[in-house]
Simulated scan of single mutants.
Amino acid sequence: MFILDPDTNTVSLTLYRYLCENIVGTKNHVKTIRLLNTIRDNGTSTESEASITSGSFGEGLEMRGSDLDMMASSKFIEVYADEKTTHNSMLTYYKMETDDVKPGFTQLLSETNGKKALFQFCEELNGKHFLSSTLFKQFHSYNIDGAIIHGPCVSDKNGILDQCLCLHCKTWISQASQWISRSNNAWPSYNVKQNQLSNFHVSMWMDHFEPYTLHAIEVVKTLNSKLLRWSNDMMSVNVKKKTCLYKRRVHQIVYCDKSSLKYFYIYYMSLWCARFAQTIPLTNTRSSNKHQYKQYNSCFCILLQNIHHDAVSGWLMLASVFYKAKQYDKALHIIIYIITKCTPEKLYSFMDMSDTHYQMLKLKSIQEKTIVRLWKIKRVDVMKFERNSWLIPNELQI
């Protein structure tokens, strides 16, 4: 039997606490971030494109100076090395040609029977059409503010987001066969590890663990995660396909087996509904026709599903739609209700935790709730109007 030296055990626990509080977060925190990433990816993926949060944050880690790495994989394009595994007339296929190219690179030869619309991304060479990485990235950079081509990725002007446009190959190519059994110790490098632990001193972290400490760490680190906020802000509404996406999200919630996961889906459904509702044209419903009345009811129903991602902002947006419809008494009643919810123990992003907050987080009933259930009850988020939102009061538009 191996007996751990008491001094080594102390240092190990001390280092673990330091990593939890300052760098990685607790085991549950990492698991929560992974779940949020996975469910958000499921919700933002469409029939034509799969969204995947990758990099260190995709693994649930938020390191100092790290950015947000996102992959966008087309579902209508498939790559193959030697022979196709299947043939689908709805897909466009590219064949890998690795002759006369640098190691780690390939040319993608377009099939002549592919969709002609995709030829706009190709360059002709010796009578053959090859996919142009530059043209492909330039076309897909329209939805990123101040987009910059950064190696294989399209990045934003602030260097926060790296979006990699990907094509799927369903088989392992021969050049990458050794990756299956490669070592996982190559990253992070020694310098990266030293940078993260540069301020660690054992003497600083010898205090006794309180029972609620790790739970408080999970709440605070998730609440203050910049990468989580940025990735959540990327959720957009495809106006042309919003009804189809709405039904798909409802299906995800209804058929989710685990109640804890269901709350995560409801959380992202709520965020998405906040944007969906703002795309529905509204006018004064008191003197409107049948179509306008239907639009108003649709917006109202969508906004009722927007109250599940925090305790306040969803209700504020509901008050806004009543104000827009000139139903001021209803708007005022909701605002009065909202004011009663703005109490000292409420949580908001990037806050300094007070004794009141720590006392609240000590409660067993609070510790038993998932992070998104806690946000629904205790978090106060900002209310965001989209550009050209139909819910902005006329006075503010002026």
Rank of each mutant, 00 (worst) to 15 (best):
A277W: 09
S354E: 07
K362Q: 04
L109K: 12
I217S: 05
L347Y: 02
A147G: 14
V219Y: 08
T38I: 10
K346W: 02
K294I: 10
Y348N: 04
L118E: 13
C166P: 07
S198P: 00
S298T: 15
I253E: 01
Q359T: 06
T46V: 05
G151R: 05
V192R: 13
L374H: 01
F322C: 09
V24Q: 08
R229G: 04
I335C: 09
N88I: 15
L391W: 13
I217E: 05
Y18Q: 05
A72Q: 10
G104E: 07
I144N: 14
T46N: 04
V220D: 05
S54E: 01
L223E: 01
R182H: 14
Y337N: 12
F200G: 00
W179Y: 07
F2K: 06
D352V: 12
Q163D: 08
Y265S: 00
M235N: 06
Y142C: 04
D352R: 10
N224W: 10
Q120H: 12
Y358S: 05
K258T: 05
S231W: 00
I173Y: 07
D67V: 01
K376Y: 05
L304K: 15
L214D: 08
K247W: 04
G151H: 11
I39D: 02
V11C: 01
D329W: 09
E49F: 10
P211E: 04
Y93T: 09
L109P: 07
Q163M: 08
R229N: 10
S74T: 12
P344C: 06
M90I: 14
W172S: 05
E123P: 05
V372T: 12
C164T: 06
R17C: 01
C256R: 12
Y328Q: 05
R34T: 10
Q107A: 08
K170F: 06
M360T: 11
W205A: 02
L347K: 01
D162L: 04
N88T: 15
A325E: 07
K346S: 03
T92Q: 05
T53K: 00
S231A: 07
W205V: 02
Y190C: 06
E62F: 05
I366P: 00
I149N: 13
E123Y: 15
Q163C: 09
F76A: 10
L165Q: 07
G151N: 11
T86K: 14
